[in-house]
Design a protein around this nucleic acid. Structure first.
Lengths: 152, 152
DNA sequence: AATTAATTGTTAGTATACTAATTAATAGTA
DNA sequence: TACTATTAATTAGTATACTAACAATTAATT
């Protein structure tokens, strides 16, 4: 197959890997009747560690922008898996609280997520994963250095 | 910063790297007044190599599903950067043809794309990129082997 | 030849990701 | 205090990615 000069780039490679993993993971969740998207699992599992968290902290940890997180939380709140509680100290903020129902749904999702991860990465060595992490950090510092250099 | 067990995974790592690169690339295109998304650049540049191509071939090369590609092509056709022509041999198919305007827009985008790629990957060795490609192929074969094993 | 399969592409609906604009509340400053 | 700036979150609008359902055409089978 002929390779295109523009599109055979590391960017497309990473993007398409990311999409393929997403598609597989979403299929697995669906086949196991977990009615959650990957992002929703992400939110619930982070909440599962701490029980509750401010919305802006959540956005930080997941590196989601505010509108995106707002909508993910809307859906999870509608499913009754979490509640937004006004923070008394700062009334701009919301405390996001995992409900009992959310905890139960999370408990069902966790083994599926672990199975997905074993399938995808079970034969990838921790050395390789460290190299991947290193690559990510270098690319991301290329981005931030560039932005600094042009005084943006 | 505390690390969450579920979300500090290779999947999230790759996904967030992919998103960060996308965001940077989209910003660069915008700052250089290129009125194209990354996907639109991808379509135009593939067409630029060959001049025209069947829609299903395009979907294959870009690994986009049909609805997604349909909508990307809709937008590019509305901008007059390409045309859909009925294939006389098989009337289910469309031949996607780059227009003169599309060629001109592509010519403006190419140097920006090359600059973006240099910024992101200029200091990444080809050895590292090969390792990344290898990692991608192994993860993707983990996916297809799994699907085979469960007779899906 | 007639029926069934598969292929190609579209439409509709939902979720995520982003920008831009807005609201509300808090912080900082003249 | 009053004015300005910043922060937190939402809303609106657009693009991509996916599923499901569909229409049209072609291929395969009986």
């Amino acid at each position: 197959m002929e390779i295109n000069k523009i599109d055979d780039s590391p960017g497309y490679l990473i993007e398409s890997l990311s999409r393929n993993m997403r598609r597989f993971s979403a299929q697995q969740l669906r086949e196991h009747e977990i009615d959650l998207t990957l992002e929703q699992v992400g939110v619930l599992s982070i909440l599962g560690e701490k029980g509750s968290m401010f919305q802006n902290e959540l956005a930080d940890i997941m590196s989601k922008d505010n509108p995106t997180l707002t909508r993910i939380l809307d859906l999870l709140e509608k499913k009754l898996y979490l509640k937004r509680e006004l923070s008394p100290g700062d009334r701009r903020k919301f405390l996001i609280v995992l409900t009992k129902e959310g905890e139960e749904e999370l408990a069902q999702a966790v083994p599926i997520i672990q199975q997905i991860r074993r399938t995808l990465f079970g034969n990838i060595s921790s050395n390789e994963l460290n190299q991947l992490l290193n690559l990510k950090e270098r690319i991301e510092s290329n981005i931030s250095n560039y932005s600094k250099d042009v005084d943006n």
